[in-house]
Design a protein around this nucleic acid. Structure first.
Lengths: 371, 371
DNA sequence: ATGAAAGCGCTAACAT
DNA sequence: ATGTTAGCGCTTTCAT
């Protein structure tokens, strides 16, 4: 409140004219020592006497000194900064991953630059270019698409990098990845449906996320094959979508219902939860009871999955862990330790959107299939 | 593939031993000019002859030069960086806001530091302290809580700042805000319920978001008052919750049902969509039909609101716009223009979770109220 | 225990 | 049109 009459009061007023931040030189001047001494004192160097250290730290506090991280970075060649590239910020799957990343980054003293790539090749390379310019210490990429050029750039840049849910091999020891086993996840879901007694099981995927689509389809096929079944061509429905957004996914799920009904399936495994939710919505509109008339399973276990009616049976990806682990691997890389790639195991979460099929004997005469 | 025999090939190999990035000095050496010339050439200075400019830019490209933003920042005192502090990254309301922010920030050439504060005073000040150290050009805060100390710090720091959904007055011209009119939003929802014929209308709020709770409660009260009604004490149910997380909100909504039923309301206005979703889930469990037996309205219009069954009637906050506008105001501030505060107008989105009350004559004898 | 001096990679004022 | 020099704010030898 009342301005003290210490030497700094003057300094502060003088400096206030056009807000240049106080520097170690300013402190040095006031303290009557060299700026080197100030630097040392502030960093608790053992070279400094207890007394001057205290005095200087106190002075720094009073003068409202805040170290200039930019200058530090230029000198030390470390920015304590990482770049995080995501496909979309509003994606409910990614937001939890980002949370995990930011959490461990911050506890390690790193700040994170967040950028969205929107699944667009140009933006992708622009983003990593920016990260490079800013001299981030490491890069994390959570992107559904990972084209050759993108990976190549990451490889060239020579900044420690960890890919999330997107494998890659690199010639340098700087490109690593952490992923969830999609094939296994799909198997779990389909095996669950098989165990319930379903035989005609559909799959819905979207072209906007080709990699996960392919892998989950593979798991779906493998599970059916193990049960001695070969999916009929109509059971597998691929929806076209340019954008990889939650809204698009919901739409895909919605539009898929008719085709699945025509194909005569009694259960559907969806590439992700948003599509399953779209499917559920379409069922609601058509008066089709889930799970009584149609079982629906998703993938991801986003927050929403347990809030929906009926609560969705789905494959849980450990999203928070995925983010934390990716950041942890990057930390290892930054500490010159060897980085390890990881495959996380998804788990099945059975809720209420799946049930045994309507046995033809229970219900309607076999001839009256859903038309 | 095949290494060219240009002078740079040597430079690159030599430099590759321990990855020091190429600098303008390196380019100058190879080009046989001063580093100043290189600097100018790369920035398209009119002082440089067309010819050498081309030559140098070409050289820079070949040598794989990437400007060092840290060094530039130190010199120019501009980092082209902003800090974004959010309560929680995984909050579906905020993620859309963040998307809007990042979008306009990036198109203005700014990178954004993302940090979560978890509604914790200590983390809040730590976060802005970090932003300050990093010399961000501006700060954006989307935090449900805004204590005095927090605001005070922001005011001291003297970095252009814009608050999202959280008013504040500042003595400097650097602290601004952009917000949605909560009172009006609540009015819209409650007036809608009144228009449907409801008289006993409940409100559910949570202690974890006191500001918005207070304001929305105020709108609720005002709407009722305008209709000549005074809410009975039991109609207003405040749920205790420490954490301000989506999950907590859902839980609050779930747990509120019994109290609301006891209070005898026929419609409920919830502080936000997550609470409404929790309430819907509780109704589903108890076999209470929404909207036939109970109308439910939310606030925010998060993505999920339209995906839920039944689709939720709610008050739409223009989330994307909110983010974009906040960033736009910050941009104005950064360009030394005067910043303006904004109040955005929410709109009512009528979906299927609200309907006229079960007129006692239609249905059950008046004595048989919900027990 | 402290200071002088150099330098991180860049921009910009001041020569020429 | 190009070069010289001086910082930006800090850390880090190397002296003393």
């Amino acid at each position: 409140m009342n301005s003290s009459h210490s030497p700094l009061a003057a300094a502060r007023v003088a400096g206030a004219k056009r807000s240049r931040e106080v520097s170690i030189a300013d402190i040095a001047r006031v303290a009557g020592v060299s700026h080197t001494t100030v630097s040392r004192a502030l960093r608790d160097s053992p070279l400094i006497s207890e007394e001057t250290r205290k005095r200087i730290q106190q002075l720094a506090l009073e003068m409202g000194y805040t170290p200039n991280a930019i200058a530090q970075s230029l000198q030390t060649r470390r920015t304590n900064t990482i770049g995080l590239a995501v496909t979309s910020i509003a994606d409910p799957f990614l937001s939890e991953v980002v949370r995990g990343i930011e959490e461990v980054a911050r506890s390690a003293g790193l700040s994170v630059f967040l950028s969205a790539t929107h699944n667009d090749p140009e933006q992708e390379i622009a983003v990593i270019e920016t990260f490079h310019r800013r001299r981030v210490d490491g890069i994390l990429v959570a992107s559904s698409r990972m084209t050759g050029e993108y990976k190549q750039r990451l490889d060239q840049i020579r900044i420690p990098t960890v890919l999330i849910n997107s494998q890659a091999e690199s010639q340098y020891e700087l490109l690593h990845w952490v992923a969830v086993d999609d094939v296994l996840g799909a198997r779990l879901a389909v095996e669950h449906l098989l165990a319930l007694g379903h035989r005609a099981i559909g799959y819905v995927g979207t072209s906007s996320r080709p990699r996960s689509c392919r892998q989950r389809l593979e798991g779906y096929r493998a599970a059916l094959a193990d049960a001695g079944l070969t999916p009929r061509e109509e059971w597998v429905t691929m929806m076209r979508a340019e954008e990889a957004s939650p809204q698009e996914d919901v739409l895909c799920g919605r539009r898929a219902l008719q085709r699945l009904l025509d194909a005569g399936v009694t259960a559907v495994f969806c590439q992700n939860d948003m599509m399953a939710i779209g499917l559920l919505m379409a069922c609601y509109r058509r008066g089709i009871a889930v799970p009584r008339e149609l079982s629906v399973a998703g993938f991801d276990d986003i927050e929403m999955a347990s809030c929906i009616i009926p609560p969705l049976t789905t494959v849980r990806q450990p999203r928070l862990e995925l983010g934390r682990l990716a950041m942890q691997v990057l930390l290892d890389l930054l500490h010159e330790q060897e980085g390890h790639n990881h495959v996380l195991t998804p788990t099945l979460v059975v809720r209420e959107s799946t049930a045994p099929p309507l046995a033809s004997s229970d219900a309607l005469p076999p001839s009256t299939t859903t038309e």
